[in-house]
Design a binder for these strands. Sequence first.
DNA 1: AATGGCCCCAACCGCCGTTTC
DNA 2: AGAAACGGCGGTTGGGGCCAT
Length: 244
Amino acid sequence: MDYKKEETLRRGPWLEREDEQLVKFVTLLGERRWDSLAKVSGLKRSGKSCRLRWVNYLNPKLKRGPMSQEEERIILQLQARWGNKWSKIARRLPGRTDNEIKNYWRTHFRKKEDAQSYDKIIEWRGNTREELLCKYKETEIMKTKTTTQEHGYDHEILMELNQRSMESDKQINGGICGKESFGVMNSPYENRISDWISEISTDQSEANILEDHSSSSSENNINIGSWWFQETRDFEEFSYSLWS
DNA sequence: AATGGCCCCAACCGCCGTTTC
DNA sequence: AGAAACGGCGGTTGGGGCCAT
């Protein structure tokens, strides 16, 4: 570790002349190679810091001003669908950054969500562990069911996948602290699969929106989720294919 | 006027995947 | 092919501003 080099790097709020310098060099060299840009520009900042400053503040493509109602609606919808995938959400909101959206959501919506969770705890108080697990599962199943119906998926297939995933998890962990007890999905495989499913979900719902404009018949919609899983048939094979 | 609490947001941190050499 | 550098991401922190007391 080059301790001296680290020591000379500036941190904290950016000065006006640093901003001007950065804009000048990004215009000159483009939005890449941030480490070398930082060195060449003479800014005593890390490449990472330069990139962040540009992406979140100096980029002329950025929108200024408060979020519109439409933007707020999109953030709420996409956060509910994808969770805290801020950069992914930001791609759907031109001119807004992941940082901005993340901050906005935290300050405007998280409290509401926390309050709702608290209400749920109050509502569930007094139940046995088994009852709580059962209620939690029911809630999760209802959520999945609603989402899959909304996007035209075959709910049974997704539940089957979930079941198989639980079984294989049991085999690996010997059933101890399996995710079936908590409804939490942590492994890279599972994260990737859930990401992938949410991607399809978006594509499908967007396809449905387009479809709605061109035709009123829902029979014409292609059920991407069912189609894929029927083609693939085997879940293990399917998950393997994601990693091969 | 001083103080404390809260909100907002820019900036940083640590991790991890991708690219480059 | 593998190591190092780079870039992107989500989570967290810290400080400024505002407001109530």
